[in-house]
């Protein structure tokens, strides 16, 4: 099939960018969306033009590296799917496809579709861990964790850090990302001891990094490749309010 692409091209962080038109023939339905971009880049490279820079790595939906806005949707038209898991059978012959980088003030564009998501690392650095030295751990089965709690913690811990939640949010809020880590750790007995400090620090860092507020539109949950529930955001709020009240 044939597709018409409108791709955001931007040479560097401080350069002006624009949408550039490309068209591709002979795209098969079995192709993944990223294979399609590879095909375009192969063509551009052979012509001596700069290929489109885009983020990708594992191509099986787990590393969180890929992520672009496709026709105005984070990771494309399917819900809960990463860009690399999207296939061309989701498009029709003759479709025009807009491909833009994830946009947020906290995700500056590096080049073309590549954005800088290091703000996420900063949030984790401010408290997204359990303070434990290698060697300190007690026997693993000494502290039982109820099945349901472990499952709930896993649901939150499954976050791949792709940034789709920020990209789809009208406020560019990192609430889902931050909340997932806070609840993952707050649920576990090992993580409880520093949960108060953690939530205050992480929420502050989230603000400092320039992310917006959560308006509970729940768009993030719909686009999240791991289907992380917005209830984790409520849980983060609970932890935050508790910390605010109990803080000495």
């Amino acid at each position: 099939m044939q597709v018409f692409l409108k791709i955001w091209r931007q040479a560097g962080p401080s350069d002006a960018g624009k949408l550039v038109d490309y068209s591709l023939d002979n795209i098969s339905e079995e192709m993944s969306f990223l294979d399609m971009l590879d095909t375009l880049n192969d063509m551009l490279t052979r012509k001596g033009e700069m290929p489109v820079e885009f983020d990708h790595d594992c191509r099986e939906g787990i590393c969180g590296q890929c992520g672009v806005m496709i026709n105005g949707r984070a990771h494309g038209p399917l819900k809960n799917t990463t860009t690399c898991q999207l296939h061309m059978r989701s498009f029709k012959n003759g479709d025009t496809i807009y491909i833009e980088p994830f946009r947020a003030s906290s995700f500056p564009i590096k080049r073309d579709l590549k954005v800088d998501r290091s703000a996420f690392d900063k949030i984790i650095q401010s408290g997204g861990f359990i303070t434990e030295r290698t060697g300190q751990a007690p026997e693993a089965n000494d502290i039982p964790i109820p099945f349901e709690t472990a499952e709930e913690a896993f649901d939150a811990a499954a976050c791949i850090g792709c940034g789709a939640c920020v990209a789809v949010c009208k406020n560019s809020s990192a609430a889902l990302f931050t909340a997932a880590k806070i609840t993952h750790l707050a649920l576990l007995p090992q993580g409880k001891y520093e949960s108060q400090k953690r939530v205050l620090n992480m929420v502050n860092t989230m603000d400092e990094q320039g992310f917006g507020h959560c308006s509970n539109t729940e768009a993030c949950e719909a686009e999240c490749p791991q289907q992380i529930s917005v209830l984790h955001i409520a849980r983060m709020n609970y932890e935050f309010n508790k910390a605010l009240v109990l803080k000495k």
Binding site: W8, L19, G72, Y98, E100, S105, C169, N171, S172, G212
Partner: peptide, 8 residues
């Protein structure tokens, strides 16, 4: 936090 929108 969201100073630039999307073209589409």
């Amino acid at each position: 936090a969201n100073d630039k929108g999307y073209a589409k």
